[in-house]
Structures are given as C-alpha cells and as structure tokens.
C-alpha cells in the first residue's frame, strides 16, 4: 500500500481541513454552464479538478461517492447529496461523463486505484467501501479494485437522482434504479447536441441543392437560385429536423427496430404531408425528387442518433449500417438526378 511507503506531508493537518469543501447548491453560473454544455458550447473544457471533495461535514466513517470530473456530472451528484455528510472522489476523466469515460477506459480500474492512492483515502476514511455509479462498471472491475486497494466497490443506482432512496433503503438498488431508460425528456435533451454535431452535413446538403437549383434549360442562372432558395432551404430544414428531432422524439412509436428505417419512415411521411399541401414548391418531377431526398436525409440523421441512444449495440449498428448506407446513397443519387432533371424541364 502506497500510504505506508510514501510519507504524506498532509498527515499532520486535520484531515477535514485539507479536502476542498463544496456545497450542494448550484448557483446561476453552474446552471448557465449546464445549458451551454447541453448545447455543446465549450463542452470539452467543462471540468473540475480530480481529487477528493467534502460535502457537508464528513468524518472517517462517511460514505465515499465516486464520480467523473465532467462538471455537469459533478454538479448533478453534489445537488443530489444535499444535506449528506459525504466524500466525493472525482476521477480524472478528461471532462467526460461517467458512462462515456468508462467506455473509453478513463473512468476505469487504473484511474480509480491511482486516485485512491493520490488522495490518501485510506487515511481519510476508516471503512473500505466505495459507491460508484452503476454505469462506471463499464470501465471498473470491482474485484480488481479490491485486490489492489482493499476497497470494495458497491455499484449504486444509474441515476444520481436515486441516491437518496438508495441510501435510505440500506444501500440497496431496486431493479428500476438499475435500468437505463430512455424517456422522452432524456431524448429531447440530446436533440440540441445532435443538431450541433450534424449541422455541417445540413449546410453541405443545402449548398449542393442550391448549386443544382441554378441549372436552367438555357444554361446556368443565379436568378433561378434566387427564386428557389426559400423553398430549397425550407425543405432541407424540414428533412433535417425529421431525422434529428422528430425521429428521436417519436422513437418508440415509429415502426421498425433499426434507426435508419425509422428515419426513412419519418422522412417519407413528412414529404408526403408536404406534398399533400402542395408545399414542396417545385414542379412534378422536383416534388418526386424531394420525396427521395427526404427519405435519404432523414434516414441518415436518424441513424446517427444511435450514438445518443442508450440501448444500441455495436454489432447491431454495424449490421444496420451495412444495409442502410447503400439504400441512403441510392435514394440520394436518384433524388439529386431527378432534381437536376426537374430544373432542366422547368
């Protein structure tokens, strides 16, 4: 054990004095930061220092909750530890949330062992128990931590909101606390990030379609772009939202299991609805072109939502992509060719 071989210079101070204290209340700055992180602004720089923190007035027998140094996660935990006296052991996950960091291995056995040693946790608490969020199990092997440090790992609930109930039940999780759900609100929270991550594709698609709409029976004309840009932009925007917003929103209610098929359904439905109201804004051939493009674009963006979802497996996504990408490319090419033809017969 390193605490025996290394002399801890802090040992002379009372232990409570050398650990930074945090409150459980979030101020406006924390809240603004959370909104910005959700919108993917400055997301990667949003972290706190790794190490041990005190919440309330913990002593040698207080619980130790382990978390990541992504500030949003850290804030959610301390908020849910209001009026607890406890320790928070924050791992250096490079500002990434527990689940993702565990997948990458930064929230992992090695980092946890290192952090236990670095913070002299064996001196600070007399018990040998750590409470980890259950999703940390993706990166942490409980039996190895025990072997290497003597601390036994208890996996608590998935959501920090359940910690109070978990402690009140004598450190027992219920089956629901263990399950990762994917409720409407959770899906909605992920939409802004999804949009921010995909707007490049949106603008690329828009540029191509704008470029094509300049084609004219007598050559190329800027005037026809000027005439068309409103309807082209609106259509592209609707299909973008079909994939990034409506598909995630309606996820469990759309038929098919694969996300790309769900996106295709939503895309085609939106195209047909717009068609019924004669709102696609082109001639007959162009409207048919839009139906193809709606399918392709919406399917692609919905497929990208697999990453944000909480239940897709790598094997499943690979299988889905093998089928979906050729279909999306075919739809897109047919759509673009028809779109071009439509401009020529205008």
């Amino acid at each position: 054990m390193p605490s025996q071989s290394i002399i801890n210079p802090l040992r002379l101070m009372p232990f409570a004095a050398r650990v930074p204290k945090v409150t459980s209340e979030l101020n406006w700055k924390d809240k603004l930061g959370a909104v910005k992180a959700r919108l993917a602004i400055n997301r990667h720089a949003y972290m706190v220092n790794a190490g041990l923190y005190a919440i309330g007035n913990p002593n040698k027998s207080s619980d130790v909750f382990v978390t990541s140094n992504y500030k949003l996660t850290f804030d959610i935990l301390r908020k849910n530890l209001a009026d607890f006296n406890a320790w928070m052991l924050v791992l250096d996950t490079k500002g990434v949330n527990v689940w993702c960091a565990a997948g990458k291995g930064t929230f992992g056995t090695d980092e946890l062992v290192k952090r236990i040693n670095k913070t002299f946790l064996t001196d600070i608490v007399s018990h040998r128990k750590l409470i980890l969020p259950q999703l940390g199990a993706v990166g942490v092997a409980a039996h190895k931590v025990k072997e290497q440090t003597g601390f036994s790992v208890s996996y608590g609930p998935v959501r920090a909101e359940d910690i109070r109930a978990y402690v009140a039940r004598g450190y027992k999780v219920t089956p629901t606390m263990r399950k990762v759900a994917f409720p409407l609100l959770e899906r909605l929270k992920l939409v802004p990030v999804e949009i921010v991550l995909s707007y490049k594709y949106f603008f690329a698609g828009l540029l191509i379609l704008m470029g094509l709409s300049g084609i004219h029976p007598d050559g190329y004309s800027i005037v026809s772009i000027a005439e068309k840009w409103v309807s082209v932009t609106l259509n592209t925007l609707v299909t973008f939202l079909a994939g990034t917003f409506f598909s995630p929103l309606l996820l469990p209610y759309i038929p098919f299991r694969s996300f790309s098929a769900k996106g295709l359904v939503v895309g085609l439905c939106s195209a047909v609805i717009l068609l019924m109201f004669n709102a696609l804004g082109g001639n007959f051939v162009e409207n048919i072109a839009w139906v193809f493009l709606f399918g392709a674009i919406s399917s692609f963006f919905a497929m990208n939502f697999t990453g944000a979802s909480t239940y897709t497996s790598l094997s499943g996504v690979l299988k889905e992509m093998k089928i979906a990408i050729p279909i999306q490319i075919t739809l897109a090419i047919v759509g673009l060719v028809l779109f071009t033809v439509a401009q020529l017969i205008n």
Partner: peptide
C-alpha cells in the same frame, strides 16, 4: 477504431 464523440448524458 470506432470512436465516440460523447455528446450525450448516456453514451456517445
């Protein structure tokens, strides 16, 4: 290798 941009509260 497939990497994850970690956009969410869940994974990736």
């Amino acid at each position: 290798e497939p990497t994850c941009s970690c956009s969410s509260a869940g994974c990736c």
